[in-house]
Write a protein that binds this DNA or RNA. Structure first.
Length: 536
DNA sequence: TTAGGGTTAG
């Protein structure tokens, strides 16, 4: 059975992915919680071809509800006689891609090739995009060979995918070169989507000035930017903290008679709030209303967040009242922001009151909300309460994230329970969650502070073996841990490694070194050498 | 009647 072999392949790749770095990891959903999913939904292959077509059209647009549905359908389609068309299979693939299950889409494609299911340029472009999303640009490019071998001619979509591949690897010059080469050779005529893709890619990666140059290039090529194009650039500048640049682009679009919309204004308001330009925030809100553009829940949430960050929770609540009056009802983001504000002030009663309000409005906390509350309790050293909340989360069917475990690990370390922290660290991996560099930093720091420096050193090694590259923070943690535990030679080796990567000792590491130097009776030669290196 | 893209909030 194709489905059985596919499932086997999926499980193989899933277990192998932690060891083999050349294959992208799978992101399969863990076993569903029996409480939240009492009856597994078993999809049935539609009997009539038209029903199948309608189902595929729907799924290609909105994605499948469950991965299993897509796999069952795929299996069923393989056994139909006559076999559905390449368009049908492409739509199924599109549905899987829409679920962001890129690894699965790639495996389905491989299965199609093995079983001689016809594929076309659409199929290959789609898979190319998946490789790009999986950050395997090399595989993405290798598919170009498959296109030629099959006698297809790569089109604007294929090349747009390749340009996106370059952008995802921050290879801006390569992206530009490929783009220009294609135009020069008249291989493709870039469309408005290609330009959007490039401009969005550049802005999301903090290259707004390059994006503006691309905007000019787009205009010169006769492709007129619209509100979305301008909004992407404005948001990019605001996120970089360059509000004046954003304002210039905003003025330019008005001069060109391109009307800003609620997204453009929301981005501008966000940028102005982050820069504490409150007068301008007021002016921008007024202008927006004068232009007959109604602020939406995003816009209000930006204001709620700004007030909360400024410690003005009462003003934030006033905004929520306005939202209710205007029919822009507060959502999970609004309430989580408020919960965060109470938690950051240590007012757990206030936070719990917000949760009650949410429940009365049938808005239920998600992992983000739970994480905020658990973090606050951990910081108050009430890890016991945080653990109760963790249990509650499971009961409600809310999946813990890497951040959830990080918060609990931090909590355990704060109360000196490194063994429990390590147990939770293994538990998260058993649940299919891959620790990130932050997780390791939390644990390394905790172990070092709880006199478990030897375990920390082993863990550092495990981290490197798992392909995680330590950053400046990680090195500083381990150096300080070694110093605290009088492992000066080890500290020195890590300090040299840091220097190889051009990382500097931070203020805490330097001051610890100085403290140790002044307190050592004889003065340690290694410490002297380390201190000198840290000053260079 | 299939593939790439569509921007804003915790």
């Amino acid at each position: 059975m194709a489905l059985t072999s596919l499932k086997k392949a999926l499980s193989l790749v899933k277990s192998a992915s932690s060891y083999i770095h050349t294959f992208p990891p799978l992101f399969l959903n863990p076993t569903p919680n029996p409480i939240s999913n009492p009856k597994p939904h078993i999809p049935i292959l539609p009997k009539h071809p038209m029903q199948l077509k309608n189902l595929l059209v729907e799924k290609s647009k909105f994605g499948f509800d469950k991965l299993q549905d897509a796999l069952h359908l795929f299996d069923g389609m393989l056994h139909l006689d006559p076999r559905p068309s390449v368009i049908d299979f492409n739509q199924l693939l599109a549905g899987v891609v829409r679920m962001k299950e890129y690894s699965v889409a790639v495996l389905l494609f491989r299965e199609m090739c093995v079983l001689n299911v016809p594929v076309d340029l659409y199929t290959i472009s789609s898979v190319m995009n998946c490789w790009c999303r999986l950050r395997r640009v090399d595989y993405g490019f290798s598919m170009l060979g498959g296109i030629i071998k099959r006698g297809f001619v790569a089109d604007v979509v294929t090349y747009s995918c390749l340009i996106e591949c370059y952008l995802s690897e921050l290879r801006f010059a390569d992206a530009e070169e490929l783009f220009c080469k294609l135009i020069r050779l008249r291989e493709i005529e870039p469309d408005v989507y290609t330009h959007w893709m490039v401009i969005n890619g550049l802005c999301k990666r903090g290259k707004c000035n390059v994006a503006v140059r691309w905007l000019r290039f787009m205009e010169n090529g006769g492709c007129e930017p619209n509100t979305v194009t301008y909004s992407i650039i404005i948001d990019g500048f605001c996120k970089q903290g360059l509000v004046d640049n954003a304002m210039n682009i905003f003025s330019e679009m008005i001069k060109k008679d391109i009307r800003p919309d609620v997204v453009t204004y929301s981005s501008m308001i966000q940028g102005l709030c982050s820069s504490n330009r409150w007068d301008d925030v007021g002016l921008m809100m007024q202008e927006m209303i004068d232009m007959n553009i109604s602020p939406n829940v995003h816009t209000f949430n930006i204001l709620v967040n700004a007030y909360c960050k400024a410690g003005k929770v009462e003003d934030a609540k006033r905004i929520i009242e306005i939202m209710n009056k205007r029919g822009e009802y507060p959502n999970i983001v609004t309430y989580s922001t408020l919960v965060q504000a109470y938690c950051s002030q240590g007012e757990m009663d206030g936070a719990l009151a917000v949760l009650n309000t949410m429940a009365s409005k049938h808005i239920y906390p998600n992992s983000y909300t739970y994480n905020i509350i658990m973090d606050a309790y951990c910081k108050k050293l009430r890890v016991d309460i945080a653990l109760e909340i963790f249990k509650q989360m499971a009961w409600e069917g809310v999946k813990p994230t890497v951040e959830t475990y990080g918060i609990l690990l931090h909590g355990f370390c704060l109360i000196g329970k490194s063994v429990e922290a390590l147990n939770f660290f293994y538990k998260m991996q058993n649940q299919g969650l891959k620790p990130c560099i932050v997780t390791y930093c939390i644990l390394l720091n905790g172990l070092c502070k709880n006199q478990n420096v030897d375990t920390a050193l082993s863990l550092f090694h495990v981290m490197e073996c798992n392909g995680l590259i330590p950053d400046s923070k990680t090195y500083n943690i381990i150096v300080r841990g070694c110093l605290h535990n009088k492992k000066y030679s080890e500290a020195s080796v890590f300090m040299d490694k840091m220097a190889d990567f051009s990382f500097l000792a931070d203020a805490s590491t330097t001051s610890l070194l100085e403290r140790l130097l002044s307190s050592e009776e004889v003065g340690d030669a290694i410490l002297h050498s380390m201190h000198q290196k840290s000053c260079n």
